[in-house]
Design a protein around this nucleic acid. Structure first.
Lengths: 248, 248
DNA sequence: CGTGTTTGTGCGTGTTTGTGCAATAATGTT
DNA sequence: AACATTATTGCACAAACACGCACAAACACG
């Protein structure tokens, strides 16, 4: 591989991720650390990126993409880290939308090799930053509110696939009533998602526990994992521990 | 082997692989390194390729990367404003991806009521900001490079729809050779897009005029509108004026 | 035809560039 | 404070390069 090609590769990574780790580049490009460091230095000299300890940052990365505005972001990161343990190399995963999910995607390990189906364009774009992840976006009507695709076309496509794991955020969960929602279309969609997965994990910040809404998605028995930001032994989760689902 | 033949051979390699190594050429052509170096130098002088340590790179290869820095943004805004005149209330529009298109979407009038099909999640998200626009995202495999959906599934869905107007960016356009591209999948996709539209408008910054790439999308006759940032009377557009397409 | 010129090619030599290694310093982490 | 990770520096070596020269084939012209 020519030096220029490496430089272009690095710049692409930077433009995609806004950041890049020296160690990752060593692996990906299969050259010594020294070479990568020199490459980065040259790109800095050309004013194309920003070098920091451990890697480099995009120049246009004027830090913090209003990350702070994401509600309860810290909790969501905790949830994300727990969830990552469920995702193994080679898996086929169906993943929903929402800020919790988006945070999860940003925390995925760089080298993960898996196939992801998603109904969220934003999640798709974020997933595309990982080299070894194949992304399939399920198309259909696009919802302005929830920023996901929905409607009959989406549901019929979901009916045709079978995945190892489904990851979804939630509006409300209750030990007896299970998963519930308010919007008819979203409700239909979630039903279809649960139906096509061998196991389903629900990502849920604690304030959405023990709430019931009008429309039922599925009983608690259909859920395999409940992931919150709380300690596993936390008393708020007692009602769920009684059920047969894994709490992370 | 004649010098000219060697030059042609080198250019063919470049167009095929976007790159070539000096050492490979020495082997393939069975001449000394010096000769190859001289050949490359001459091709550089003719502006046909790009020389680097160890070999040479295609010229178009270079330009394919710096989209990410919202290159030539001013031109793209000019193009966007011209394009808006083509879009009328009630229309069904198929729209591609790329930075030029994205700029267009950002410039749309707030009250516009129309239906947009798109293969670009980013465009979908941007379109969703308009209240009176219905957005349908066409799903399929998601391309990491071009940030659009592609593949058989996309093409078969395109085959099922019929739209009033197709808006697409372009890699290369030439008065005789028409629309061309380098990537096989993108090429297939563009063909399908043109096929399902009554009229097609090509958005094209002037530096992509008069370029021919390896794969043909369609002849110039299949294009209804060519939109550049230049004045309609500009001399660069003379070759296109001779054809039967509207220049904006 | 002969002589001089141009062009294309290869060779030798010295220089530059790209890369990795090892020792050491700086920085982050626990 | 101890440790692990990441940076920096200087050095070595091979690959790639530029330049001048030599030679031969093709060409030009009287």
């Amino acid at each position: 591989m020519l030096k220029k090609e490496r430089h272009d590769f690095i710049m692409r990574q930077i433009n995609l991720h806004n950041r890049v780790l020296t160690s990752d580049l060593v692996q990906l490009l299969n050259v010594s650390e020294d070479t990568i460091r020199r490459d980065l230095q040259e790109l800095v000299d050309d004013g194309l990126l920003f070098k920091v300890h451990g890697g480099a940052l995009s120049k246009s990365y004027h830090s913090s993409f209003d990350d702070s505005t994401v509600y309860a972001r810290d909790s969501k990161i905790v949830i994300a880290k727990k969830t990552i343990r469920l995702i193994k190399d080679g898996m086929v995963v169906l993943i929903g939308g929402g800020t919790t999910i988006l945070e999860l995607v940003k925390q995925l390990p760089q080298h993960l090799g898996a196939t992801f189906f998603t109904i969220s364009p934003l999640v798709a774009v974020e997933l595309a930053k990982y080299n070894n992840i194949e992304v399939i976006l399920i198309g259909g009507l696009f919802s302005k509110n929830s920023q996901i695709t929905y409607g009959g076309h989406v549901i019929s496509q979901l009916a045709e696939i079978k995945v190892d794991l489904c990851l979804m955020g939630t509006s409300a969960i209750h030990p007896e009533e299970g998963l519930t929602d308010t919007d008819w279309e979203i409700n239909q969609l979630k039903k279809a998602m649960v139906a096509c997965a061998k196991k389903t994990a629900v990502l849920c910040i604690s304030e959405k526990l023990d709430i019931t809404l009008r429309l039922k998605v599925c009983p608690i028995e259909n859920i395999s994992y409940l992931i919150t930001e709380l300690e596993v032994e936390h008393e708020s989760l007692a009602g769920y521990r009684a059920k047969e689902l894994n709490i992370l």
